[in-house]
Design a binder for these strands. Structure first.
Length: 665
RNA sequence: GCCCACGUAGCUCAGUCGGUAGAGCACUUGCAUGGUAAGCAAGCGGUCAGCAGUUCGAAUCUGCUCGUGGGCUCCA
């Protein structure tokens, strides 16, 4: 997987600028909430949805009250900050999904310890009942005003608005002593702002306009709602969500560790976490087998030269681990470098070489090569986060080589596979984004392969496949990979951060660049199209999503330990052992608790480890040939005959049943 | 990479004014043989992330390094 250009390789983990790493974003469209995917197949949504999300605060209800409150509070915060740090300059201060933020260049640092005083000052400002007064100025006056205000960043943006967006007049808002260039709207006056319904949340660095070439500003985030109750409910929900954090659960439930002795961003999968990975891989292999994929296996290394041929180097070198230089003799100083190798940051070049390993006929196509290949990317250290953003990862990868006529059907099958995978796992809170070419993009030919005809045709095929799939999607114009359109699947983490789970790209350029051909019906040599696809993204990130989705309480088929058997006394351990042996013959991950603790304690331990099936055996069970079953999340105990217990258990595993409902959220 | 915060036992955390380290859980052992979320007791466990400095004396103060977390256009 991955793309054929450095920039786009990184798209599985978000664009290089980090533009997708929003804090607290709501999914633009909660497309799949509350309804099974299947029912969406024929939904009325067979059209491209609006590019701007429905609950995006910028457009919601044409700037509703909440938007005005948040926007106005941002001004109040800025006023308070300027009181405490006179002479500081302003950046942006927009409403966001759960509050607002404001960016500053501060004359002297503020920390979260200053929050109480800032909040106090904000409340004081609110009490003053300052009126928000709107003023529109034509270009020259506006620019003069900004010069007087000594706000260089606002000024820079104003220039851009006049130049590029072609606006005529610039809007300013004044409340009390505070003046800001701002399009509004705002509340009438500060007393209209609900007291006690906002809370300063955190302080963070943020580059001006998100570009690391620009100045580093100080960003203050705040939560804000219309009522105190809403704020408190939000904060409470946020804290509860932190309990599901995959990093926390990963430690508590022994899923993975990241050990500095190995290296940052290089997770070690513990036995429990490996089970989940393996189960996802098994599932994917089944789905792929059904769709005619063939499995391949390729090494972690390749000669650097290969990446020169694909066009990744030297452009993408920064995203890769440093090259390994093989020298003559013992590699002593001064020995000539014979060849260099790289740790692969993607699998596609290897798969392309497999395609090239023999002469291909049009009759062979489509060829679908699948591999869960381990890749390594040298991500910025500050970007690393648990399993969500790592430097060593396993791609849920496959490359489909096909003719133009096959694109639509193949893409449709790929999207259907996504649907199947997510439905099986009960994942609903995601949306799809169709990223297209922007022929008018000023960066033009540097950003996209210069082949308008290919763009038009491939986008049409992908679009038609999406429409036919019936899966709703949004469009991101100008966000395509440089070699073709793509469909990304966006998920939200428990803390509200949005991440790309899967990226699926249509590549009409790189196979040609590598000289891949097949013999066509007319005996000519033709370049294949290539679809890069990864329904489960990387196994690291995907398992992280699943941990958070299930809150660590996995359904039986996914659970690291599927059944734990407790004997009420050591006397009945033989019965417990026999039961476990019987289950393990059927590949059930069952084990006996031999801790010798009290039953209450063993129940507690199994429960805190979120084991889905707890079986208690004692005299009654041994005598009657039964078990007493207690399912995770339930206090009920059910007595079952051994064979009916086993049959039900095996069925749930076989059917990949989501056998619990209380984690529905 | 950059900004901010944080780093004490395997985990979660306490540690006052700078005076040489503590709890609960986990683990080990012993007792208890217990019927659905913690039986009782003892023990083991720390280079207070690392290095350097200030000091008679540093977990505590300062600097650097390493690591972790949050954030780095939701664009006036």
């Amino acid at each position: 997987m991955g793309g054929a250009a450095g920039l786009h390789l990184r798209f599985l983990f978000g664009p290089p600028s980090g533009g997708l790493r929003f804090q607290g974003i709501q999914s633009p469209v909660h497309l799949h909430q509350g309804s099974p995917l299947r029912s969406l197949r024929h939904a009325e949504s067979k059209r491209i949805m609006s590019t701007v999300a429905a609950d995006d605060p910028r457009v919601a209800e044409d700037h509703d009250e909440l938007y005005r409150v948040r926007h106005s509070l941002a001004h109040v915060l800025a006023q308070a900050v300027l009181e405490m740090r006179p002479g500081s300059t302003l950046g942006f201060g927009p409403p966001i999904s759960d509050g607002f933020y404001y960016d500053f260049i501060l004359t002297e640092a503020l920390t979260e310890e200053d929050f109480p005083e800032l909040e106090k000052r904000m409340k004081h400002i609110i009490k003053q009942g300052q009126k928000f007064e709107r003023e529109e100025l034509p270009r020259e006056e506006a620019m003069r005003r900004l010069d007087e205000m000594q706000e260089p960043y606002k000024r820079e943006y104003a220039e851009e608005l006049f130049e590029k967006k072609g606006i005529e007049r610039l809007t300013f808002y004044r409340n009390g002593p505070f003046l800001d260039m701002c399009e509004g709207p705002h509340v009438e006056q500060t007393r209209a702002l609900p007291k006690g319904a906002f809370r300063l949340r955190s302080i963070a660095g943020a580059y001006w306009r998100g570009n690391s070439d620009n100045a580093m500003m100080t960003r203050i985030y705040a939560w804000a709602f219309l009522t105190k109750e809403e704020l408190e409910a939000h904060v409470k929900a946020y804290k509860q969500a932190l309990e599901r954090d995959h990093k926390k659960l990963g430690r508590e439930l022994d899923f993975f560790v990241i050990d500095d002795a190995i290296g940052k961003g290089l997770p070690l999968w513990l036995p429990n976490g490996t089970v989940i990975r393996d189960e996802i891989e098994k599932l994917m292999k089944e789905l792929e087998f059904a769709d005619g994929y063939q499995r391949v296996a390729t090494p972690h290394l390749a000669k650097t030269e290969l990446y020169h041929q694909t066009g990744h180097l030297p452009y993408y070198a920064e995203g890769m681990y440093p090259f390994m230089e093989l020298k003559d003799h013992g590699g002593a100083e001064g020995d000539e470098v014979r060849e260099t190798y790289v740790l692969k940051p993607m699998n596609c070049p290897h798969h392309h070489r497999i395609f090239a390993s023999r002469l291909r006929s049009y009759r062979d196509l489509p060829i679908r090569l699948a591999e869960y290949g381990q890749v390594y990317r040298y991500e910025d250290s500050g970007a690393l986060s648990g399993l969500l953003r790592v430097r060593g990862m396993c791609m849920n990868d496959a490359h489909i080589y096909c003719t133009e006529d096959q694109i639509k059907d193949e893409f449709l099958k790929v999207m259907t596979m996504h649907e199947d995978l997510y439905r099986i796992l009960g994942l609903r809170d995601y949306y799809l984004r169709f990223s297209t070419w922007d022929p008018d993009d000023p960066k033009g030919k540097n950003k996209y392969v210069d082949n308008p005809a290919a763009w038009e045709s491939t986008q049409k095929h992908v679009y038609e496949a999406m429409v036919e799939s019936g899966i709703p999607f949004t469009e991101g114009k100008g966000e395509a990979a440089f070699y073709g359109p793509k469909i990304d699947v966006q998920f939200k983490t428990v803390t509200g951060r949005e991440e790309t789970a899967s990226t699926n790209q249509l590549d009409f350029a790189v196979p040609a660049r590598l000289g891949l051909v097949y013999r066509d019906a007319d005996n000519s040599e033709t370049h294949p199209y290539c679809i890069h696809r990864a329904p489960a993204g990387t196994h690291e990130r995907f398992v992280a999503f699943l941990i958070e989705h299930f809150g660590g309480a996995f359904p039986t088929w996914l659970a690291p330990v599927q059944v734990r058997v407790l004997a009420v006394s050591d006397v009945f351990l033989d019965y417990a052992d026999a039961l476990v042996a019987r289950l393990r013959k059927n590949f059930v991950r069952a084990e006996v608790d031999r801790s010798g603790e009290t039953v209450g304690k063993m129940i507690r331990n199994a429960t805190t480890h979120k084991i889905p099936n707890i079986v208690v055996v004692g005299e009654r069970e041994k005598r009657d040939g039964t078990v007493t079953l207690r399912r995770y999340g339930s206090r009920d105990q059910v007595a079952l005959r051994l064979d009916e217990f086993e049959e039900d258990l095996l069925r749930r595993i076989r059917e990949r049943s989501l056998d619990r409902v209380d984690w529905d959220h």
